[in-house]
C-alpha cells in the first residue's frame, strides 16, 4: 500500500493524469464544437469514438495498418457519418420552425436513439467480445517514469489536435468565424459569416475528433460496443464545467477531470473510477449548469 505522500509525488501518476486529461480534453473539444455551433446535445459522442476504435482495431488486425494512420481514416469516416446524419435528418429538423424551437431537448432524444442504434449495430456486427491488440507496446523509461510507446503516441497526437485547434480558432479566418458563430449566431450571420456551411464544418470536425481519439484509445483500452459511455460523460463534464462553447476552458476542464480521476482512483481503488466520473458529472450539472469558466454570456 503506497503512502499518501508517495501517491502525491509520483511522476508516474502525474503523467497518467496528464494523458487521461488530454484525452478527455480532446473528446470534449469535439463535443464543444458541435454544441457551441449547433446547440446539438450529442450524447452519441462516445459511440462515434467507439466506431473510431473499431476502425483502428480492424485496420490493424486485418490490414496491419498503424492505428495512427487509422485515426485519420476513422476521422474521415465519422465525419462522413456526421454528414450523412446532417443531410439525412438534422438539416430537415433545423429548417422546420416547430422543431427548431425545441432543438435542444429534441436533439438529445434523437442522439439517444443514434447512440442505441450505433451500439447495437456494433454489437451485432462485431459481437460484444472485447477487442485488443498490441501495437507499439514497448515500454519506454525515463528515470522512475515508464510509459508504453503507444500511450505516449496517443498523448502527443491529442496534444497536437488541441493545440492545432486553438491556433486555428485564433489565427485563421474560418476559425474566427467559428468563434463568432459560437458567441452570437445572428450577429455572425449579419457580418457575412456563412453560418450553414460553418455549422456543417464544425459538426463534421467535432465528430471526426471523436473518431480520431477512439482510434488512439483503442491501442490501450479494450474495444467493445459499449465503451463509449464514459467518454460521453467526460465530454459533457468538459463542456458543462468548462463553459459551453468555451473551447479553451474545456481543455483546462478536461485536464482537471483527468487529474481527479487518476488521483481519485489511486487513493481509493479502480472500482471507484466510474463512481468518481458519474459523481463529478452529477455535481457539475447540479452546481453549475452554466459552467465554471463561463465569463462571457453566450447569447443565442
Amino acid at each position: 500500500m503506497t503512502s499518501f505522500f508517495e501517491i502525491l509525488t509520483s511522476g508516474q501518476l502525474l503523467l497518467a493524469a496528464l494523458i487521461t486529461g488530454t484525452i478527455y480534453a480532446t473528446v470534449g473539444l469535439g463535443l464543444n464544437l458541435v454544441y457551441g455551433t449547433m446547440r446539438l446535445l450529442n450524447v452519441a459522442h462516445g459511440e462515434f469514438l467507439m466506431l473510431g476504435a473499431y476502425v483502428a482495431f480492424w485496420g490493424f488486425s486485418l490490414f496491419n495498418v498503424s492505428p495512427f494512420l487509422s485515426a485519420v481514416v476513422a476521422g474521415v469516416l465519422t465525419a462522413a457519418l456526421a454528414a450523412a446524419l446532417y443531410f439525412g435528418m438534422l438539416r430537415w429538423c433545423l429548417r422546420n420552425p416547430r422543431m427548431r424551437k425545441r432543438i435542444e431537448p429534441n436533439s438529445l432524444l434523437i442522439f439517444v436513439g443514434v447512440s442505441i442504434i450505433l451500439q447495437n449495430i456494433s454489437a451485432l456486427s462485431f459481437t460484444g467480445t472485447p477487442r485488443g491488440y498490441q501495437y507499439l507496446s514497448g515500454v519506454m523509461t525515463l528515470g522512475s517514469i515508464s510509459i508504453s510507446a503507444n500511450r505516449l503516441g496517443a498523448f502527443v497526437f491529442c496534444i497536437a489536435i488541441c493545440i492545432a485547434t486553438l491556433i486555428f480558432l485564433r489565427r485563421s479566418a474560418t476559425g474566427l468565424a467559428i468563434k463568432a458563430l459560437i458567441q452570437h449566431k445572428e450577429a455572425a450571420e449579419i457580418v457575412g459569416v456563412n453560418v450553414t456551411r460553418l455549422e456543417f464544418f464544425a459538426l463534421c470536425a467535432g465528430f471526426a475528433t471523436a473518431g480520431i481519439v477512439g482510434a488512439l484509445v483503442s491501442m490501450t483500452e479494450q474495444t467493445t460496443p459499449f465503451m463509449g459511455f464514459p467518454f460521453t460523460i467526460a465530454a459533457f463534464i468538459v463542456i458543462i464545467m468548462g463553459g459551453l462553447g468555451n473551447l479553451a476552458g474545456g481543455i483546462v476542464t478536461g485536464l482537471l477531470l483527468g487529474f481527479i480521476e487518476t488521483y481519485g482512483v489511486a487513493f481509493t481503488s479502480a472500482a471507484w473510477s466510474s463512481i468518481l466520473l458519474y459523481g463529478v458529472f452529477v455535481l457539475a450539472l447540479i452546481v453549475r449548469p452554466e459552467g465554471i469558466f463561463t465569463v462571457r454570456q453566450v447569447v443565442r
Partner: peptide, 26 residues
C-alpha cells in the same frame, strides 16, 4: 435535481442512475 431543467435534466437523471448503480456495485 429539480433545479436543473430541459435537456440537462435528461442527462442528469441518466448520470444519477449510473452513479447509484456503481455505488451499489461497490
Amino acid at each position: 435535481v429539480l433545479r436543473v431543467s430541459g435537456p440537462y435534466f435528461v442527462i442528469l437523471t441518466f448520470g444519477l442512475a449510473e452513479f447509484v448503480k456503481y455505488v451499489v456495485m461497490a
